[in-house]
Design a protein around this nucleic acid. Structure first.
Lengths: 320, 320
DNA sequence: ATGAAAGCGCTAACAA
DNA sequence: TTGTTAGCGCTTTCAT
């Protein structure tokens, strides 16, 4: 019977038909657990994310799920809630329940690696020795973005950074600093307490003070925070200041003004990640693309309103 | 040994310590699969959603995941991609791999029920005979919303409906129609091809023509679509027309103007859903709350710009 | 080409 | 209180 299901070609056609009929009739579904016990393969893959509520991670997970199901794999979801020790716990407790891990949690944390045991893993946006990774690179897209800004008369840029421990934060920061300086931009780097709307909102005082005419933020949520903060000070986007984000989350196209941003190939990344699980350690790179929408444009002429807003800060009207 | 792990109180303290030490030393983790084979409990729960990329569902899933992990359950994620037959496939193939289903996919589909077999399930926003459900009710919050609109001088309302097959669409539609008429509103119902930004964007022609001064949309994405469409016609929100959404997705607070909406208790719903898995069939209700932000306000005085926009439609400038 | 038997890692029931 | 055994539903090997 087992033979009929797994090696149908090595069974007599007649027996085969009988068995298949019975299977359909009884609605028989083999137990993956029992099978896994003996084969050593569970048919499960675990995907670990910091926060499924972040649209960028949600897109990645959706792609992983779709590809996994096409390969008859089940997806175990672990949401660490940005809590790194949860990642280790999950790895340890799941290591033998899954055929592989897809770790999208971008903070580097080396303790986690032991917990994996011999279970293969592919890391998204986190290069790890001895393990597979898929890296989402932005440098070429950033170059395009800065070229767009430059040709619109911008020279002074503020960059709102991401979490220090994140590989993506390093890559993006390097891309804008490096490309920026090469293109003759003056780039002011602003460190933000977290990669969130609120945190970014709280930094607009520094953005305005910096004299920048354009700001690039680590992700779209932060870009929205900047836009809201600017508006809160009576400044308009892109009229007074241009804003560019990263990720191109679905909402980026729905807001006003629609966000100029760097779109990440999340579908390909998710698909690639599960495909890479079968192969040995390897590192692949995928590239983001520049998406021009309406939160960026020509540098403003007068800058009177920006100067006025700068006055605000001195008067203590800054909002933390 | 098994005893030490599962019934520690029925083992001699000394033996217990020895075993526990060994467990820690070897990093022993029992195989859920093998255990499940004999106990009949897998320690897994499957959660089925139409689209994890929708922030409303993502919030629900996050709550489910957190609660499940606290109960030492693993979460199997199934994203049906809005495809109802996938739901049946998933139910059939997972029925024996999980201790329960949490079905957040809101379209009603009765074929799915047989596939469940004897596996318990709790349905979110879908009442199902013989099964548990948690229903997210909005009527009281809608009453508040309409009262807010009324006291701001609104009398004519457009309602943009959700998917016909969805229980939530029925509940929300009934709430606004019923409460609306009771409060003396004139409510124009507009059917939209899908619960999306784009689909809603495409209906603003009809919204404007209806003469409504306020629109309530089935969800926040649609509300954003309406706002964008209105802006596209030179109309402002809430200056010319007020807009109210449902769900209070995280982005609702980040956009301009911040969305007035009806917030859903997704955390409680998710938690409740996994708690209810253990108990027998039951139906619980949770209530949304009205959140007043800035996409709604006093009805505009002149309405000249709205009249102008209406002219647009006649001239064929409508965007499908 | 097919049947029979052993055994994957555990728990439950029974002995001791 | 602890050791032993049968067996969960499968696959694999060996015999037929």
């Amino acid at each position: 019977m087992s033979r009929t299901l797994n090696l149908p070609e090595r069974v007599a056609p007649e027996t085969r038909q009988r068995v298949e009929a019975a299977v359909r009739e009884l609605g028989f579904v083999p137990s993956r657990a029992a099978r896994g016990l003996i084969t050593g393969r569970t048919g499960n893959v675990a995907v670990i994310v910091p926060d499924i509520t972040n649209p960028h991670f949600a897109s990645l997970v959706r792609a992983v799920e779709r590809t996994a199901r096409e390969a008859e794999l089940q997806v175990l979801l672990v949401d660490t809630g940005e809590h790194k020790e949860e990642e280790v716990r999950a790895a340890k407790s799941l290591a033998r329940e899954v055929d592989g891990f897809i770790v999208i949690s971008p903070r580097r944390l080396h303790r986690a690696l032991d917990a994996l045991g011999a279970t293969p893993a592919v890391f998204v946006n986190r290069p790890v020795p001895q393990h597979s990774s898929v890296l989402l690179r932005t440098a070429p897209a950033v170059a395009e973005a800065l070229h767009h800004l430059e040709s619109n008369g911008h020279h002074a840029l503020a960059y709102l950074g991401g979490p220090a421990a994140s590989w993506a934060a390093g890559e993006r920061r390097h891309a804008v600093r490096h490309t920026g300086r090469k293109s003759g931009f003056e780039v002011e780097e602003i460190v933000v307490p977290g990669p969130t709307f609120e945190a970014a909102f709280g930094t607009v005082g520094r953005v305005v003070d910096s004299g920048a005419t354009a700001v690039v933020a680590f992700n779209d949520q932060m870009a929205l925070g900047v836009i809201a903060g600017l508006r809160d000070r009576g400044l308009s986007v892109p009229g007074d200041i241009s804003v560019v984000g990263f990720d191109d989350v679905p909402m980026a196209a729905m807001v006003a003004p629609p966000l100029t941003t760097i779109s990440m190939p999340t579908d390909e990344a998710g698909t690639l990640a599960v495909d890479m699980l079968r192969q040995g350690p390897a590192s692949r790179e995928l590239f983001g693309t520049f998406v021009l929408r309406h939160s960026s444009g020509p540098v403003s002429r007068g800058r009177a309103s920006v100067a006025a807003a700068r006055g605000q800060r001195v008067s203590g009207a800054d909002r933390a």
